[in-house]
Simulated assay, not measured.
Amino acid sequence: LNLDSNLPRFIRTDSIRLKQIIVNLLGNAVKFTESGEVELKLEVLEKKNKKCLIRFNVRDTGIGIKSNKIDKIFQAFTQEDASTTKKYGGTGLGLAITNKLLALMNSKLQLESIAGKGSKFFFELWVDAEDGQAKEWENLTWIKKALIVDDNLNNRTILERMMHLNQISTVSAKNGFEALQFLASGEKFDVVLMDYHMPYMDGLDTIRQIREIFNDSDTLLPIVLLFSSSDDEKVNRACEALKVNARLVKPVKMDDLYEVLSRLLLKNKIKPALGSEETQHLTLKAIKILVADDNPVNMLLAKTIINRTAVNAIVIEAATGIDAINAFKQYDP
């Protein structure tokens, strides 16, 4: 997820059509990409009289499309060739429908592609826009320098851009070995953003080395783990054991990142509870939440809401009442 920092906070458009278009393009990109990545990128091209021209890009590293087939690909019931239909399935209606929806919004779908390397579908929309009041974050001034560890260049670039918006300088490492070398050289960092899925030495192995080798002070180096699923019990237990300060589900959103960073210093801070003289502790320690629902859509929705509002939550799923009772006995949420 790559969002232009100049995007307005609020826009007015046909949200139902726009969501369908983006879902169609992302679904296609995922279907035809066996390795690599899929990127959704939004960028501002022009602002004028409370209107904004936004380009929506969906880029993949999939099979790509031959140049002589690009015009054909937008026709209904058409895919690049019969072998594509046989291997990946589908009716060939997705792009045709997407283009018709865009025509209703005074836009059109465009394509850049190289066979065997991937494709980029994009379109541009004029929307009514309102910047609104800029959101201000507290407790970030102590962070002067961050170490970003991720094997994906695009992910590193996006995180660097997010940090620079708050005048936080960054050093990036493309794997755990490079991260350890930076720390061994004596370079000081206020926080580490650590990706979990990396080759050779994953994020947890790297954090384990950091804790064992560089744990020479009373205050541990704050570390935020970035990974794709927050309900992995093994990862959650490891984070507790390694004293990982917080976890963020990818793709990382700027608001979520700043929220976590702003709370790092407040981990043990006491604040008055509303309507009473009692106090409560704000903690980033993992909390267990049991969700019982036999509907998989409801379960996915509940997990999504919980993961976005409580980044330190461990979601325990139960599809039946009996499963819920057994999970309660086992995990004691």
Rank of each mutant, 00 (worst) to 15 (best):
A179V: 00
L226M: 15
N166K: 15
N215I: 01
S228Q: 10
D150F: 10
D150H: 13
V171L: 13
W142T: 10
I213S: 11
G203Q: 02
A146G: 05
T141G: 02
F177P: 00
D205L: 07
H164K: 15
D218T: 09
R237K: 14
L225K: 13
D195A: 14
F182S: 11
R161I: 02
D218S: 13
M198R: 04
L153D: 11
L147C: 13
Q167N: 15
K243V: 05
I207D: 00
F182I: 01
F189A: 10
N175F: 05
G186I: 03
M162A: 01
F227A: 14
F189L: 10
L183D: 07
D216G: 10
S172L: 06
Q167H: 15
N155T: 09
L180V: 09
I148Y: 11
M163P: 05
E160Y: 04
L153Y: 10
R208I: 00
N215G: 15
G176V: 02
I213L: 14
D195H: 07
I213C: 05
L147S: 11
S185P: 00
E212N: 15
N166W: 12
T157S: 15
K144S: 14
E187T: 10
L226Q: 07
A146I: 02
D190T: 07
E178H: 12
R156Y: 01
F189V: 07
R156G: 03
V171D: 12
V191G: 11
I168Q: 12
K144Y: 02
R237G: 01
V244K: 10
L165V: 04
H197Q: 12
H164T: 11
N154Y: 10
G176W: 03
N245K: 13
E160G: 11
V235M: 04
L242T: 03
H197E: 12
R161F: 03
L180S: 06
E160R: 13
A184T: 08
R211E: 03
T219W: 09
M201G: 01
I210D: 02
R237Y: 10
Q167D: 15
F177K: 14
L204H: 01
S217G: 13
G176D: 03
D218K: 11
E160D: 13
G203D: 07
N155E: 05
L204V: 12
N245S: 14
L180D: 05
R208W: 09
G203T: 03
L153I: 06
L221G: 09
K243M: 12
Q181Y: 09
G203M: 05
S217Y: 02
L183S: 07
N166I: 02
Y196C: 00
